[in-house]
Amino acid sequence: MKFLNLFALTSLFCAAPLAAKVKVVTTTEDLAALAAEVAGDSAEVTAIARGYQDPHFVEAKPSYLLKLKKAQLFIQVGLELETGWAPALLSSARNPGILPGRPGFMDASEGCEILGKPTGGVDRSLGDVHPLGNPHYWLNPENGRVIARAIAHRLSVMDPDNSGKYKANLAAFEERLSEKEKEWDASAAAFKGVKVVTYHNSWPSFARRFGLEVVDFVEPRPGIPPSPAHIHSLITRIRASGVRLLLVEPYFDLKLPEKVAAESGAALVVIPPSVGGEAGIKTYSGLFDRQLELLKNALGGK
């Protein structure tokens, strides 16, 4: 009997109307930063993975369930970026409202420009590929705009009382972003056509937007560590095709990239692909500010 009472009580709690602030949980800090721009003070936004973590390899820790249990809106990058951890967390969170297909579930990739969709057959001889296209699409600010709009729409539907605020926050964000984009384009003009090698295939959207040319990767296939033979041919290729920069995400060990840089003459740049990838990067535009600053510094003398 006591158990039944307890059960009834908990059910009541769950059925209670939305609290004053909408609780939003995102998989990455990039999505959290975008959600925070739109939400202002009307929603509480938290991210699961930190920006300095490899988003493919986040541990599905049970402590994340505490966040997910109370979430009203869950946002993921999608395209199988989080396939190793988000589904396991969602199905264990005991929060039916944020399961795929429910109004509380959002895949941020919808409507974004996605590069690298495989055209032929895909299998794992190609490594841990992303069969739905490259999931690092948030590194194009125009995709950030699309994501922010989608979040604003979701929040307005979930929390109609504050829809005016969300609309205004979105408009202000878009305006700031447009201003920033002009600034970024101006500074990126200096390195149009610069050839780069990246560790993981995280940068196609960024490279297309800012005019870099990605020639090769340190990883021979996504998720597969390089062999000595691959490193050897990579060094040769960097020298032959005049690659100037070697971009490495901060979560990879630097020993090998340092060797490649030293032997090939390319400049090594540890460049964060996410908000929170360095302590100082706290906003979505702050991410591009920092990335472009790093590239500029690396190319500065040449």
Binding site: A86, P87, L90, S91, P96, L99, P100, G101, R102, F105, D107
Partner: peptide
Amino acid sequence: QPQLSGNALQSSNIL
């Protein structure tokens, strides 16, 4: 539980 269209769930393969 609120009713949900089966299609939405089937089209998403996350679970």
